[in-house]
Computed example of a mutant assay.
Amino acid sequence: MTTTRQNGSLFTSINNNIAIIEFGHPASNSFPSELLERLRKELISVGNNEEVSVIILKSEGEKAFCAGASFDELVAVTNLEEGKQFFAGFANVINAMRTCGKLIIGRVQGKTVGGGVGLAAACDYVLATENAAIKLSEFTIGIGPFVIEPAVTRKIGVSGTTELTLDATNWKNAYWAKEKGLYAKVFETQKELDEAVDILSEKLASYNPSALVEMKKVLWKNTENWRTLLAERAAVSGELVLSDFTKKALQKFKK
């Protein structure tokens, strides 16, 4: 079942110390700014909840995991401040994932583009299906994956990010993503994926919560400057989106 709500949906359920945060949007689970802000707040709230030991991040439906930011909102950007604000959406969510204090398991059932790749990269452990191909297509519209780059490079290295960014028109399959370290395991079916997510989350929830919190800190060591860094990257993207090149490319895509 997928949502038909224009601004998308976000639901959290908490059982046995496991929080499941599920997002959805009719446009291939893409994120309008309002939904990104709701996700940011939810991650902070769940991160502060002592009843939660581990978070599962997933999206609705059986097709795309996440198509990135809202294309309609991107087209509507008219000045630098709006541009910075637009790109700050994913920056703020990645920072919330980084600092929320709880380990995050990503459940990736399908194709993932742009900001969605950043979302997967900011999870601590990702399980996926073989349908979970990835693409960073930002170059094709005159911008770049600047905001999500630190999260992606942290997971797959500079060479992986380079390959993904420069080959902007082609998908990399789920096994490529696993080989590079973005995914921990890849399954043939969603049923197998969901069983594995359940088993892993139950195991993690049975461990010492304090050990999990300390491990989260260790895993994200040396990212303390990301609040500033990602804001700077949002400004770079905000400027590029106003360029003539990007405006023309966006109009072509729109048609």
Rank of each mutant, 00 (worst) to 15 (best):
F86S: 05
G106V: 12
I105T: 08
G116D: 09
T99C: 10
I143H: 00
G101E: 03
S70I: 08
F90M: 14
K41A: 14
S59R: 00
G142H: 05
I55G: 14
E60L: 09
E42R: 08
F65N: 00
N131K: 15
G61Y: 03
A76F: 10
S137G: 09
L103F: 04
A151L: 03
G144P: 00
K58I: 13
A128R: 05
G110K: 06
P145C: 06
S137V: 00
I56W: 11
N131G: 04
E60I: 03
R98L: 14
T78K: 09
N95R: 01
I141T: 11
T99Q: 11
A128C: 07
A132D: 09
E138A: 15
V54Q: 12
K155F: 03
K102C: 13
G118M: 07
S45A: 13
V52W: 04
P145K: 01
G89M: 07
L43I: 02
K155V: 11
E82M: 14
T129M: 01
N79E: 13
S59A: 13
C66K: 00
N131C: 03
S45Y: 03
D124V: 03
Q85D: 15
G89I: 04
G110I: 08
I55Y: 11
T112V: 15
S53T: 09
G89L: 06
G68C: 07
N92H: 08
F71W: 10
Q109A: 12
I148N: 02
E130T: 01
L57W: 10
V46A: 04
A88F: 01
S53Y: 04
I143R: 00
G116T: 07
R107C: 05
L57D: 14
A76K: 11
E73K: 06
G47W: 04
A122I: 07
